[in-house]
Design a binder for these strands. Sequence first.
DNA 1: ACTTTACCTCAACCTATCTTTAGGTTTTAG
DNA 2: CTAAAACCTAAAGATAGGTTGAGGTAAAGT
Lengths: 151, 151
Amino acid sequence: MEKKPLQDANLAVGYVAKRSDVNVSTLHFYETKGLIRSWRNDGNQRRYKPDVLRRIAVIKAAQKMGVTLEEIKLTLDTLPQSRTPNKNDWARLSTQWQAQLDEKIAYMQRLRARVEGCIGCGCLSMSSCPLYNPNDILGEAHSGAVLLEKD
Amino acid sequence: MEKKPLQDANLAVGYVAKRSDVNVSTLHFYETKGLIRSWRNDGNQRRYKPDVLRRIAVIKAAQKMGVTLEEIKLTLDTLPQSRTPNKNDWARLSTQWQAQLDEKIAYMQRLRARVEGCIGCGCLSMSSCPLYNPNDILGEAHSGAVLLEKD
DNA sequence: ACTTTACCTCAACCTATCTTTAGGTTTTAG
DNA sequence: CTAAAACCTAAAGATAGGTTGAGGTAAAGT
């Protein structure tokens, strides 16, 4: 039978890991980075509040959007510390990252257009080919490469 | 005064670096990775054919499209070695990488739609929130590439 | 000729995001 | 009570894509 969180809702690291589909070592790592928090029980083992699950889900979602952990931390740090974040709190983060995502999409679309143009262009003249001289559209206004990882 | 390639077209590494806007060390690095080739002069210095400039431009363009150096190498290796690649050769590569780029764009758009949906959703129920349970839209339909997910 | 710039190799280092390993402790199941 | 499973820490290793530095050689400007 699936282990369930206690009613007092202090979750063990293994449970959180399984539920979030990340390794325990990743949770340790996130903790050292200040992305999640825990307290310790009598035996020095980590315990989490249930909202850590949402935090982790949000971290993973933001990563998929191409946001770095450092940026994610900065944004998570704007959540209220005095109370459990509510729907509006989370929505604010989504909105912020969505804007970044939109920028990335736009960047990739410009890139696509350029490459498409290049297929048909003369492309063997160094002075005119946009692949040789890519410093107009592509160099600027792009906030970080979008690194989508494969397994 | 700007140094110009000789008519016999053997380019020095510094010239190539400046022209391509990459570091000399990057050219060394690319060479160790088999992405570009050179020969040596009497004094053991690297010399390049002019088409190395296009190769580097193409490498940089592909990187912007999110292609890894390893994949780039595999694709560059399909260029004819017996002759200088022509327009059609390069166009073939563009087409291939463009398809990958299209996939990434589509992925990001699905992601965007999902996050947008999440802003308005109840989002505090672990069993129904798509942020908590992201294994439907995002994992699938991604030909061989499970993005940012472990198995 | 002499000096500066360019080039060479090899190894170590860098950032980000984790994972692995080793050695030891705590909790839980039977 | 015992044994297995889960947990702890600290450090090292992995991966991509390079950059930096040391120590020495080659080429080019004057």
